[in-house]
Simulated scan of single mutants.
Amino acid sequence: MANIRIRLFARMKAAFTLVVLSLVVCQAFAGFEQNIINDDDLILDQALVDSINSAQGSWKAEMSPRFQGVTVREVKALLGTDLSVESNLPVHSYDDVSDVPASFDATTQWPDFIHPIRNQEQCGSCWAFAASEVLSDRYGIATNGSENAVLSPESLVSCDKTDMGCQGGNLNNAWNFLRDTGITTDKCFPYTAGGGNAPACQSTCTDGSAMKLYKSADAYNLKSVADIQKDIMTNGPVEAGFTVYKSFMSYKSGVYTKHWYEFSALGGHAVKIVGWGTEDKTDYWLIANSWGPTWGLEGFFKIKRGVNECGIESQVYAGHVSA
C-alpha cells in the first residue's frame, strides 16, 4: 500500500510539473509573439496589458491615454537619446555615503524648486528636456529660490550643434553644452519643436529682449548607486539614459522591470531621477518623465534600483550650478 501511495504521489508530482511547464511555455510563446514589433503597429497592445496585469508582477499596465493611436514608428521618434557613446566626462564620487537614507524624494525635500512634469510631444528631445530640467531644479535648490526659472529645452534642441535636435542627442554632449555655453529660460526661448521640427537658434529672446544664459559650473558622470543617491540628496536631481522596450509605454504604477522575453529595444530615452525608495520589498528609483502628466504616475515612474535595469544606472550625468 505504501508503494502504491509513493507511485501515485510521484505521478501526481510529474503531472503537476508538466502543467506548470506548459503554462511557462505558453507564456513564453505569448511573450515572443508580442515581442514581434512592426513599425506601423500601434504601440499599445491590450493582450500585453492583460498579460502583465495577470502575472501579478511588481508593476501594473494600462492602455495609456498618452499613447492611444500612436504607432511604434512614432514612439521610436520620441526616443532620441544616443546611448552608444562612452562618456568622456570625469567620474564624480563621494568619500562618504554612509548617510544615504533608505528613501528620498526631491519633490518633497524641495517642493518649490522641482519643476512640473513637461511634454516633449513628437520631437526626440528627451535628452534636452531631462538635462534642462535637472539644471533648472539645481539652480532653484542652490540659490534657495533666487534663481528658480524653468530653463529652456529649446535652447539645447536648437542651439547645441553637437547633437541633432529632434532627431536625438547624446547626454555627454548636452552636459558639455550646459557647461561651456549654457541655456536661457523657457520664457525667453519657448519650446515649439513639439511637432518634430526645431526652430533656428536665437541670440535674443522671442520678445526681442536680451538673453540671459544659465550655465553648469562643471559636468560629470556618476557610476555607482550610492554616488547617484548622494548626489541627488546633496545637489538635486540627475539625468539618466536607459533603453526602452515596448512594455514601458503601458506603465501605470508599481516598480517597472522589462520582461525577460523582450529582446527588441525601441531606442534610448533620457529622464530625470528625483529619488528612490522600496515598494513591496523591491528597491526603486523615482523618475520624472517628459511625456506629460497623463502617462504613468502623473508623469513619474518607478524602475527597479540596484541591478542596472534597462541600463538606468550606466549613463547618469549632472553638474553643479555656476555661480
Rank of each mutant, 00 (worst) to 15 (best):
113 F>L: 10
113 F>P: 03
114 I>N: 12
115 H>C: 06
115 H>F: 11
115 H>Q: 14
116 P>I: 07
117 I>Q: 01
118 R>H: 07
118 R>I: 05
118 R>G: 03
119 N>W: 00
119 N>R: 06
120 Q>F: 05
120 Q>T: 05
121 E>G: 00
121 E>L: 05
121 E>C: 01
122 Q>G: 01
122 Q>I: 03
122 Q>D: 01
123 C>H: 05
123 C>R: 10
124 G>C: 07
124 G>E: 04
124 G>L: 03
125 S>G: 01
125 S>Y: 02
125 S>I: 00
125 S>F: 05
125 S>W: 00
125 S>D: 00
125 S>M: 00
126 C>F: 06
126 C>L: 00
126 C>W: 05
128 A>G: 01
128 A>P: 00
129 F>N: 08
130 A>T: 13
130 A>D: 04
130 A>P: 04
131 A>P: 02
132 S>I: 05
132 S>F: 05
133 E>C: 05
133 E>Q: 08
134 V>P: 01
135 L>W: 03
135 L>Q: 06
135 L>A: 06
136 S>Y: 09
137 D>M: 12
137 D>W: 04
137 D>L: 10
138 R>F: 03
138 R>L: 06
139 Y>N: 11
140 G>V: 08
141 I>N: 06
142 A>Q: 11
142 A>L: 11
142 A>H: 14
143 T>H: 10
143 T>M: 15
143 T>Y: 13
143 T>F: 12
143 T>K: 15
144 N>A: 14
144 N>H: 15
146 S>P: 13
146 S>W: 15
147 E>V: 15
147 E>C: 12
147 E>D: 14
147 E>I: 15
147 E>W: 13
148 N>P: 12
148 N>M: 05
148 N>H: 12
148 N>I: 12
149 A>Y: 07
149 A>H: 04
